[in-house]
Design a protein around this nucleic acid. Structure first.
Lengths: 346, 346
DNA sequence: ATTAGCACTCTTGCCTTGAGAGTGCTAATC
DNA sequence: GATTAGCACTCTCAAGGCAAGAGTGCTAAT
């Protein structure tokens, strides 16, 4: 479809445009790269590339700019697979290291790191897992009539819930209740716990109350964990020249901020093994609604293991993006986060 | 200092400018408000107000715009104390209600709600407290050589830490260790726990290891909790006409994002009882560094009780801001969050 | 097939021009 | 003495014109 030389020129146009954010002209190319042909030849080739839909004109007489199709060809055929520079790898590992054992906000941290390294906006979702299982429960007295229910779930997750006690109870009584309940429910899902609560006839009212709350809390975790996504690094998008007027950015933000995020980017939809690149409007989720999104690309990857517990990591930036660098970063981060997740998973 | 009529005019100029974001001229005022005087008189008064520093000219022949001093006078003397409309109160209470007992991200939620209600950026810090106290500790087996240490602290806070065990241990052994350790350290601070670990000679190596980790984790909480701040709603600032070009916003974001936030806004410095208003450059923390920040105002309030556990809530927006509404919202939210905090506090 | 040359197009910056809005001042008025 | 009408002046903003610069597209020569 494309001759050797056309590919070469397309490659140069893409790289140059990514660097400068300017349309690139035939003369500037021949000056900068020793192609062995004149600007006129390059012009002819460019016209041909435009004919075929890989390049475009912003105005009749400006340089050429890659089209969506051009970027796609570049990503698929021209761009080399780059390994992430050791220095960047170091940066990533180092920042995760500061977490030590306390995992707390590691997903959030992942998003921050990613945004920082690729200099674009980043999205990371918490691992979506199969129904969570209870490892341990504990009751801690807050005051006479309130206690804190602490649930330790798989993957080293913690949940808390304040319980108003129908009758006053001391810490000793609470501990005894917890100890008694722990054994029968260990390792079970919310659904299974509901079954246990039904079958066991010998429960005291307090025990029944606690089990009910355990179950509803775990259900909330099962439903809620899908929504837990972190978006970081919008400031990098602000710094891009194509988003110089903030109306554009505002549009993007409205599309992304919290609730809408999953609707805008098909996070779970296509994250298979490896890294997926969505360029411009070939995002399946986008109708005609999103002007600004049409000028963006999304790099998607996933971490964890598919059936067990996995999350999505994504980079969002203007279509004019450093694809090799971004893709290798996503791939590397996916590995790091997979390793990290494995540590918390039996 | 200012005559009745001058005050009236200043009031109108501020309100009109806040509404329209345009300089306001003498004619438009007399057309809209029945002042009983002609535009020429208004012009004279405006000239006088400018003389005294309350108003300014963007250009020689545009309408008047309030100066910092003008806004300050408005806030202090002209603006009425408005109670937050019941509808907004309802919105706030309603959203907090959805948390139920799981407090998890309530500080973050507070920031989101605030940003949404005042249509500006909002900052909320987690309550800064005196040294945290341990209420309960628990050990849960992850696998043969790793366990999850769960700490329940005061104010219903949970911390987790993965512990690599020097020797393999079953869940039963871990529970026994936890049970043994719980009693002597209950209610103590990190510092006091260090003392206990030193004095008690009869500890096994594992127990000593656990206590060490407990102490260091709690120290981390003591130090880290000051930094826990949430920033939400930058999109509202993007929507303001004074921040139409994103370079401005970028500057702001760099000033605010994460680490720098506390350096930019004197969060803990001046949050006494009640609500503090910082208008433009009278922010004590700002040197000459921050162009964009000079055009902003900050409304500060605090929640919780001063000596015990308190956090800061703040709104950041352009100087051209709906002060009455914003101030009453901050005040109201402070009350709601104080109530909420009291629930978790003995 | 490649290239040199040239006319053509389109942007960008700069200037001018006219309309519109608002001020500041002076002189007249209540 | 305060208020107001009137008017010249200033400044912005949008539109139009003009020259420079960059790049293209085409044609004819190599």
């Amino acid at each position: 479809m494309l001759t050797e030389r056309q590919s070469r020129i397309l490659d140069i146009v893409v790289r140059e445009h990514v660097d400068t954010a300017q349309p690139v002209g035939s003369q500037s190319i021949t000056r900068k790269y020793r192609l062995g042909v004149s600007s006129a030849t390059v012009r002819n080739e460019m016209a041909e590339l435009e004919e075929q839909g890989f390049l475009g004109h912003p105005h009749t007489s400006a340089g050429r700019v890659p089209t969506e199709q051009g970027y796609r060809f570049y990503v698929e055929w021209l761009m080399g697979e780059e390994e992430l520079p050791a220095e960047a790898q170091e940066t990533i590992r180092h920042q995760f290291h500061q977490l030590e054992g306390g995992q707390e906000g590691w997903v959030h941290l992942g998003a921050s790191i990613l945004a920082q390294v690729v200099e674009n906006a980043a999205v990371v979702t918490a691992p979506r897992t199969t129904a969570c299982r209870l490892k341990h429960l504990e009751l801690v007295s807050l005051n006479d009539t309130a206690a804190l229910l602490v649930l330790v779930l798989d993957q080293a997750r913690l949940k808390q819930q304040v319980v108003s006690l129908d009758a006053a109870a001391t810490q000793e009584e609470l501990s005894a209740t917890a100890a008694k309940l722990n054994h029968p429910v260990e390792g079970l899902t919310a659904h299974e716990i509901a079954g246990v609560a039904e079958r066991a006839a010998i429960l005291t009212p307090v025990e029944r109350q606690v089990l009910d709350i355990v179950e509803s809390t775990m259900r909330a975790v099962d439903e809620g964990s899908a929504d837990e996504t972190y978006l970081e690094g919008i400031r990098h998008i602000l710094a891009q020249p194509e988003f110089a007027d903030s109306a554009r950015v505002l549009e993007l933000l409205d599309l992304l901020d919290q609730g809408n995020l999953a609707r805008t980017i098909p996070l779970h939809a296509l994250a298979q093994e490896g890294v997926t690149v969505i360029i411009g409007a070939d995002n399946p989720r986008l109708g005609s609604a999103s002007e600004a999104m049409r000028e963006c690309s999304v790099i998607l990857g996933s971490y964890g293991s598919q059936g067990v517990a996995s999350g999505v990591i994504a980079v969002l930036g203007p279509m004019r993006m450093r694809y090799p660098r971004t893709i290798s970063t996503v791939r590397y981060l996916a590995n790091v986060m997979s390793d990290l997740l494995a540590q918390y998973y039996p």
